[in-house]
Structures are given as C-alpha cells and as structure tokens.
C-alpha cells in the first residue's frame, strides 16, 4: 500500500466545513500531521474557486451540509481531476453514501487521523 510519495510531507488538503470552530480545529490537527491546509472554506462557491485557482490538491475533506447547501458538486469536480476526497456529515453516513459516488463517509465528530488514513491510506 506504500506509495513512493506517501510519507513525503506537504500534502495539500482542501477543507470544506461550515462551522468555524470545527474547521479551525480540523485545520490545526491536519497541520500537526504535516499537512498543508487549503482553506478552510465554508461554502461551495469558495471551494470551487479554490479548486479552480490551485493547481495542486492532493485530497479533500468535505462536510456534506454547508448551512443547507450540499457539497456534492465539489466532490464531482474533484473526481474529474482524480483527487481523492472524503465526506464528513452530521447525517447518517448511510443516507449520504447514496450520493457520495463511492467516496468514504464519516459521521461527525470524527478523529482527523481517520480522515487522513482514508485519504492517503496511512498517516
């Protein structure tokens, strides 16, 4: 499972999460794992803007419900670019899985290490 670049630091991970404090603590935790955080951003428009602007994204953590707006369109764009992503949600993970297109879904709260593991296979 070990890829040559797996342990290399400086992976760039996009965080989309509407709650400031959740986003903030997730960003801090990711940084502690040596990850470069893109964002965090709180809505779909800003996420799409970031993706359009940044050439390099290695992974993304997407909160499903952003103050009533659904994040799935961000996932669709990432998939076309071959970027791995995971969903986090306050909903039942199984009810989200139907729209997730095979991407892993986690019910909140979820330890950041699990998210990194799901994205890159190790941490």
């Amino acid at each position: 499972m070990t890829k040559p670049e797996a342990r290399s630091p400086g992976r760039r991970v996009l965080v989309v999460e509407d709650d400031y404090f959740v986003a903030d603590s997730l960003a801090l935790a990711l940084k502690a794992h040596g990850i470069d955080v893109l964002g965090p951003v709180a809505n779909v428009d800003e996420a799409l803007e970031l993706i359009a602007r940044d050439e390099r994204i290695d992974g993304a953590i997407l909160d499903v419900n952003l103050k009533g707006e659904l994040v799935f369109s961000v996932g669709d764009v990432l998939r076309t670019r071959g970027v791995p992503y995971v969903f986090t949600t306050g909903y039942d993970a199984s009810s989200v899985a139907r729209h997730a297109g095979g991407a892993p879904c986690f019910e909140k709260p979820v330890p950041p290490a699990q998210l990194i593991d799901a994205l890159f296979g190790e941490h």
Binding site: D19, F21, V22, S25, N65, T89, G90, Y91, D92, S95, E107, K108, P109
Partner: peptide, 21 residues
C-alpha cells in the same frame, strides 16, 4: 428524522467547540 439527527450531531460538534474554547 434526518434533519433531527443532523441538528443533534452538529450540536454536539458545537458543544465540543464551545468546551475547547
């Protein structure tokens, strides 16, 4: 029901954040 669950879970993350802060 989905909405209730969503709200409850979110509330827990908010409580968690308030506790940390």
């Amino acid at each position: 029901l989905d909405e209730m669950q969503h709200r409850t879970r979110n509330l827990i993350t908010v409580v968690e954040a308030i506790a940390q802060q």
